[in-house]
């Protein structure tokens, strides 16, 4: 997570860059969440009543069934839940949440259409969770730069040169990736 501070119209705005494998939910202070996407997906959730919003940035949809792979922070299935839960702890209510989904480009012709699979997952996840998808800009072969104001729920999506997109690769993770058990 990179954080910088801009002064816009006389007010200080924190710019938070949400990197692959990360989730960030707004603090309620003036902030702008940003990210650059190729085949990855960023989902922006916003609860207009609580005025709380957040963004995630995931590489892949979910592990193949039976693969034995843990659905960790490389995967949308985990990062979507993390985003929803963090929204809820800040007062968000799941049934009120609205979603914007961006990214999912197929950056390299001839290779597996990871971007399409990611976008398909995001749509399905939101449908299954009963979260309204109000804006989507996915697919194609171009990278995108996203800006999201988590207080106002406004997004801006711009197409940029493919070379500007970060290389999509799994997040390096420690051996103990999750699932720690503590019996009381």
């Amino acid at each position: 997570m990179f954080v910088t501070t801009d002064v816009q119209g006389g007010r200080r705005v924190r710019r938070v860059t949400v990197m692959q494998g990360q989730v960030y939910v707004g603090t309620g202070e003036p902030e702008m969440l940003t990210t650059v996407l190729g085949s990855c997906i960023a989902c922006c959730l916003y609860d207009p009543v609580a005025q709380v919003g957040g963004m995630n940035h995931f590489l892949l949809a979910e592990p193949s069934p039976g693969s034995g792979t843990i659905a960790d922070r490389n995967y949308g299935v985990y990062l979507m839940e993390l985003l929803i839960n963090q929204m809820m702890t800040r007062g968000g209510v799941k049934s009120r949440m609205k979603a914007h989904v961006y990214g999912g480009a197929n950056m390299h012709s001839g290779m597996a259409r990871i971007g399409d699979a990611n976008a398909l997952f995001a749509r399905g996840f939101l449908r299954d969770e009963g979260i309204a998808l109000v804006r989507e800009d996915t697919g194609g072969e171009s990278a995108r730069r996203i800006e999201f104001d988590p207080v106002l729920g406004r997004t801006r999506c711009r197409v940029i040169e493919a070379a500007a997109a970060p290389a999509a690769k799994p997040v390096v993770r420690p051996r103990q990736v999750g699932g720690e058990v503590e019996l009381f």
Partner: peptide, 12 residues
């Protein structure tokens, strides 16, 4: 009885 952190490891 206990607490398990997601993402869960199916074997754990």
């Amino acid at each position: 009885t206990g607490w398990i952190v997601k993402p869960f490891d199916a074997d754990k």
